[in-house]
Design a protein around this nucleic acid. Structure first.
Lengths: 181, 181
DNA sequence: TTGAAGTTTCAGAAATTATTGAAAGTATAG
DNA sequence: CTATACTTTCAATAATTTCTGAAACTTCAA
């Protein structure tokens, strides 16, 4: 399992970016490696290709599985587990958005809800609650919206994205034709 | 500058989340503190409220300024600098999305472009390039789309978000009435 | 100028996070 | 069962990131 320079540069880059996307370097590398390989790889293949310890691979796979970004794959008559990246790019993007929503927004939403039911003790707190409720409303909208977008088919999502700034026009149109909805 | 328990719990939580949002704990705390305070605060106020060193505050403010999430504020006859969080919640959300796009997507897009102009050396690389070009296309769409959404007015964005899954219906409508666009 | 009031920088210390590798665990073929 | 081929766990260690605080710097009133 030697990587070609092209593949290696992608894998390493993905490792660096990994930390910005919410997982650590080796997890990023492992995932990139799996995405780019058509055949499933064993944990040992991965450890060897990336020159990292077997234990680290095991932990990384566990994390990728918790993100549901890899599938295991059994080969008849072979006791090893093989791993490959999940289905299509859209599936992957979906999972990443979903996980990030869970990790980045849900805990904050829940804290904000708790704070907002308290009675403000003084003017400072009243102002604070005012701001927090704005944040809460915004986060809630974004969170719900992203859930709804995820339910859209890839085709529709693609149409929507390709629409780009034209979305403004479509919104005007909606007002014209569908006052009721 | 003593925080009330309610404010403190929000500030501390925001610190914890900070790391998931791309800045460190103290930067998150500092930002939360500024959001929740109507009056601008001096660097010393911040250091005192959060019990962190003056130097740390200075670094944090520098970072928040690089994200353009805080404004400085001068008080006549006072040599201190005062800081407050940027305008509305929408402005803040915009900045956060913009920065994250820059940090999380742009470098990857640029690497992918470089890789995709290379000629694949073998079948493995051909498969790899195939997948990378899918990723590239997707990232490019998301990136452009998010830029376009940012240009929309908060009102329109809000309408769009509130539309929720109804967006599917609007898309169908668009096909019916605006075949040309 | 000067010095007081403030800010920034940065080397080292502290805290956190990631990684290794050996030991413990698990499943299966015989 | 038991040996074997594999996986997982986790304590120790390495690497990285964050934080402190003293020193250097800046600005401005007098």
């Amino acid at each position: 399992m030697k990587m070609t320079p092209m593949i290696e540069s992608f894998v390493m880059h993905f490792g660096e970016m990994g930390s910005r996307w919410g997982f650590n370097r080796t997890v990023g590398q492992m995932y990139a490696l799996l995405v780019v390989n058509q055949e499933p790889l064993s944990a040992n293949d991965i450890a060897e290709a990336l020159s990292i310890s077997r234990g680290n691979v095991s932990m990384g796979l566990k994390e990728l599985q918790s993100w549901r970004l890899v599938q295991t794959h059994h080969v008849a008559g072979d006791r090893k587990d093989y791993y490959k990246a999940l289905g299509s790019i859209w599936d992957m993007a979906n999972k990443v958005f979903e996980e990030r929503r869970k990790r980045e927004m849900d805990p904050t939403l829940s804290l904000l809800r708790d704070i907002l039911i308290e009675t403000p003790a003084n003017e400072k707190e009243e102002y604070a609650q005012q701001r927090l409720s704005e944040i809460h409303e915004l986060l809630e909208s974004i969170s719900q919206w992203s859930e709804e977008l995820q339910r859209l088919s890839p085709e529709k999502l693609n149409t929507l994205m390709k629409l780009g700034s034209g979305v403004g026009k479509v919104l005007d149109m909606k007002d014209k034709f569908l006052k009721s909805s």
